[in-house]
């Protein structure tokens, strides 16, 4: 079976995000960018399935600016076999919406015919949590989101999902979409020899137009603002003082 893993280039999760003074967005110039953390987990899961013999080939795909190449190289260094870069923007500030991403991915799925797509649950920049579900709708496939455990059993995947009340296990027919949650695995680091080897792995470059997908946004960003700030209060010296303050505030 072939597995497709979409990986997004996003601001590194350790970077302090700054809203641009003119309210036009978030400053991404000269900021450290990395693979979306959930996508590292998705790539890792695909590699583990390959190591178990359930998967033969792992194809990673990224849609966005040309620099997303670096993200794909990282995935190749972790252990993916092949990459497809879909250039859909030339400004790093332009985010391609999940619906357009899902439409491009659906075309790639038609071409590549994977038995499984493993995406991240959520991109930590737009925090949409939508692409996997949208792709699965467009393909008419089943979906198993927020996965914390995946087991391939014949023509189905048994997936444990993190839900509001705890855990839910479902069985989804293949081909299907799985989205990775935090507890699915701990992604490996790429070793130096593997980083070198990754430079020679195939990376195909395409454009959104090659797939005939219109990536113009459905949601017009009117403005981007700083959230309401919260100032530090006071330090209390003892538990007694804390209890007195909480009583004064009327919350206990």
């Amino acid at each position: 079976m072939k597995v497709l893993v979409p990986v997004k280039r996003v601001i590194d999760y350790n970077v302090k995000v700054r809203v641009k003074a003119d309210g036009s967005g978030v400053d991404l110039a000269n900021v450290k960018m990395s693979m979306n953390p959930f996508d590292e987990i998705a790539v890792e899961e695909a590699i583990r399935l390959k190591e178990k013999g359930a998967v033969e080939e792992i194809v990673v795909v990224s849609i966005g600016v040309k620099q997303a190449q670096e993200t794909l190289r990282t995935a190749l260094a972790m252990g993916a076999d092949r990459a497809i870069l879909v250039v859909a923007a030339d400004d790093v500030h332009q985010d391609i919406e999940p619906l357009a991403v899902a439409k491009i991915l659906a075309k790639i799925v038609e071409e590549e015919q994977p038995g499984l797509v493993i995406a991240g649950k959520q991109a930590i920049d737009n925090d949409m949590n939508a692409t996997g579900q949208m792709l699965s709708a467009l393909l008419g496939w089943g979906q198993a989101t927020f996965a914390s455990e995946v087991e391939i059993a014949g023509d189905a995947a048994k997936v444990t999902r993190e839900v509001d009340g705890g855990l839910q296990t479902i069985s989804v027919k293949l081909p299907a979409i799985i989205t990775a949650d935090l507890r699915l695995n701990e992604p490996r680091y790429a070793s130096l020899p593997n980083i070198m080897k990754a430079k020679k792995k195939p990376l195909d470059e395409k454009t959104a137009a090659d797939y005939g997908v219109d990536v113009s946004p459905r949601l017009e960003v009117v403005k981007t603002a700083e959230p309401a700030g919260r100032s530090a209060g006071i330090k209390v010296g003892s538990v007694d003082e804390l209890v007195a303050k909480l009583k004064d505030a009327g919350v206990v």
């Binding site: 601001i11 995000v17 978030v26 737009n126 925090d127 949601l219 403005k223 603002a225 959230p227």
Partner: peptide
């Protein structure tokens, strides 16, 4: 967006 570091109006 960005873990609540920015509020977007769309």
């Amino acid at each position: 967006i960005y873990a609540g570091n920015a509020i977007q109006t769309v």
